[in-house]
């Protein structure tokens, strides 16, 4: 997300990321980050919670106006209060998870983000 964001910012647009992992987004050089403690797949809020979604979007935009320096991060004050047990992962493990089970020696490449040279 941060890599795409910095390219769009560099092209002359003012950008902000809503990010659940602000440290990771920041390390990619994101100019503005609104950190949000929401589950993956529900960045703005629960399905059907229009008021909650609006509040998060509004907070991100307002935070943006107050940011004066590259790399600004604001932690949005929203609390995820639902105790409902949610299935947050994908229906089947993603290909890289299955690959690493079969090729455990490739794990350092994954952790260090040094993939093998592309064949495609």
């Amino acid at each position: 997300m941060g890599l795409v964001q910095r390219e769009i910012e560099a092209a002359g647009f003012s950008t902000i990321s809503l990010s659940m992992i602000p440290e990771l987004t920041a390390s990619a050089g994101a100019p503005r980050i609104a950190a949000i403690e929401h589950p993956f797949g529900m960045t703005l809020g629960r399905p059907g919670d229009a008021a909650g979604q609006l509040a998060v979007l509004r907070a991100a935009l307002r935070a943006m106006e107050a940011m004066a320096a590259p790399g600004s991060v604001v932690h949005l004050p929203f609390e995820w209060t639902s105790t409902e047990k949610l299935r947050l992962g994908p229906p089947v493990p993603p290909p890289i998870a299955r690959y690493l089970v079969r090729h455990p020696w490739a794990l350092p490449r994954f952790l260090n983000r040094t993939p093998p040279v592309s064949s495609s």
Partner: peptide, 8 residues
């Protein structure tokens, strides 16, 4: 003018 990027 402004782009909001939403991480998932």
């Amino acid at each position: 003018d402004v782009v909001v990027l939403v991480q998932v």
